[in-house]
Structure formats: structure tokens, C-alpha cells
């Protein structure tokens, strides 16, 4: 499904070269849920950028869904991002003053062919993440957890081969974070490949497999941990009245 072969990334030129990634090689099969864990400064972001086809490695190869990504030109790589990768960012990265639905539909704008059922797809996607009643809300009318769920719906709208989540719970409280993890786990059970990048062991343990990134090298932990189930954890949390209500006053839509 995805394969990295001796990926190296260095910055600087000549004598003062800093290698951020050194010969990173690993594979993830279709349907796997892989967490890449590392403290800050270990090259996590750089790896995430390369996995997301946002940045080019200094050397090495990257195969995604059978495609040798970096043998393509910029336009083709953009198309790969559009078709094969669904991004979930720590800061959500939603367009302000655009409705949840418009945010979800954003990737389709750059699709080869705009689907005729786009609005239906977007609506269904929002329903699937539990936001059926927030379709026309703007990001500032949504809580952090809700915003991240909009981002998830956006990541799924092109039906990508890979979900790439970069610290998706980093800006969320524990409950909202677990809700996101529960959705990711559900998507994975439905057969989607998920790559999660995090510094948080508790979050990483929701994945079936954990890779550790240390000093730009990757170490496979295989599956030595017990996989946590986010839904079970959520159910165990003390009940709160309305966990998702944002503190800001909500406008009518």
C-alpha cells in the first residue's frame, strides 16, 4: 500500500548539512493503522510532509498505492495528493467564513472531474462524523472537536487510499480527541489505511502498529502493545452534559 525506501532528507548545503531523516524505510499494508511516534525534533513533521507528498526527500523512493510518487512532476504530485491522500491536521486548517459543507467540498474543486453528487457526498460525510445538523455552520461557530470532524469529512470526500493524520488530537481536549480517534478506528475497521503521526503514546496505542522515529531513523515496534479502543475509553469517561457545545454563541444557519 505504501512503501518508503531509504528516504533521506537533509537541509543546508556543503559542510553544514543537517540530516533530518536518515534512510527511513518501512511499509504499511492496505488496511493497516500505523502510528509514527516521536518526540519533537525527531523529524516527525518532515516525514509527515514526505508521506503527504508535500515535500521532496533528498533521496529515496516513495511508493503510494502502486505509484512511484517522486518520479512525477509537480502537477501529477498535486493530483496524487488530491486523489490518494486525505489530510487531517493538528490545526484543522479549515477555511474561515466558509460553511462546513463548503470546507468538506474543497478537495473536489481540484478533482479531475467534479462529481455531480458532490453536495450529497459532502452532506453524507458530515452526517458520518455526527455533524448532520451543522452543515452550514462556519468554523468559528463550531467547537474544536467539531472542526476536526469537519476536517475528517473533508479528508474522506475524495475517497482516498490513505488517511494521513498529523497530531489530529493535539489541539483537542481528551474527550474530543477520543472522539476523533474513535472515528479513525472505525474508518480503519472499514478497511481504510490510516497513518497517524503523534508524540503521544496514549494516542499512538490506538494504532495496530507503532513505528518509533528517533534521530531521523525509524524503528519498528511491531505490535507489542495492547491496542486501545477509543469508543470503550469514551464510554468510560464520566458523563458530561453537552461535551461538544462550543463556548461561543452560535449563530443561526
Amino acid at each position: 500500500m505504501l512503501k518508503l525506501v531509504e528516504i533521506t532528507k537533509s537541509y543546508g548545503t556543503g559542510a553544514v548539512q543537517t540530516s533530518v531523516l536518515r534512510d527511513v524505510t518501512f511499509k504499511a499494508e492496505k488496511g493497516e493503522f500505523v502510528a509514527i511516534m516521536g518526540a519533537s525534533g525527531t523529524g516527525k513533521t518532515t516525514l509527515m510532509n514526505i508521506l503527504g507528498c508535500l515535500d521532496l526527500p533528498t533521496s529515496g523512493k516513495y511508493f503510494l498505492d502502486g505509484v512511484d510518487v517522486f518520479s512525477n512532476n509537480d502537477n501529477a504530485i498535486s493530483a496524487i495528493r488530491n486523489q490518494k491522500i486525505g489530510f487531517v491536521f493538528q490545526q484543522f486548517h479549515l477555511l474561515e467564513r466558509a460553511s462546513a459543507l463548503d470546507n468538506v467540498l474543497l478537495p473536489l474543486i481540484y478533482a479531475e472531474k467534479y462529481p455531480t453528487d458532490a453536495v450529497e457526498r459532502g452532506t453524507n460525510g458530515l452526517r458520518a462524523v455526527g455533524l448532520a445538523d451543522r452543515i452550514l455552520y462556519q468554523p468559528n461557530q463550531l467547537s474544536g472537536g467539531q472542526q476536526q470532524r469537519v476536517a475528517l469529512a473533508r479528508a474522506l470526500v475524495t475517497n482516498p487510499a490513505l488517511i494521513l493524520a498529523d497530531e489530529p488530537t493535539g489541539n483537542l481536549d481528551r474527550r474530543s480527541g477520543l472522539e476523533i480517534m474513535a472515528i479513525l478506528q472505525k474508518l480503519n475497521r472499514e478497511g481504510r489505511t490510516v497513518v497517524l503521526i503523534t508524540h503521544d503514546r496514549d494516542i499512538a496505542e490506538h494504532a495496530n502498529r507503532i513505528l518509533i522515529l528517533r534521530d531521523g531513523r525509524i524503528f519498528d515496534e511491531a505490535s507489542s502493545h495492547t491496542v486501545r479502543d477509543a469508543q470503550t475509553e469514551l464510554d468510560a469517561l464520566p458523563a458530561v452534559a453537552a461535551p461538544d457545545e462550543p463556548s461561543v454563541k452560535r449563530g443561526n444557519s
Partner: peptide, 16 residues
């Protein structure tokens, strides 16, 4: 900047 980055990440080409 971030909007531009986002659009690129979601598949926007330079030309777009």
C-alpha cells in the same frame, strides 16, 4: 499563506 498551503495539500496545482 495557510489557505494557499491547504489548497495545495488538498490537490491544488500551482496553476490553480
Amino acid at each position: 499563506r495557510r489557505e494557499i498551503g491547504l489548497r495545495r495539500a488538498l490537490g491544488g496545482r500551482r496553476r490553480d
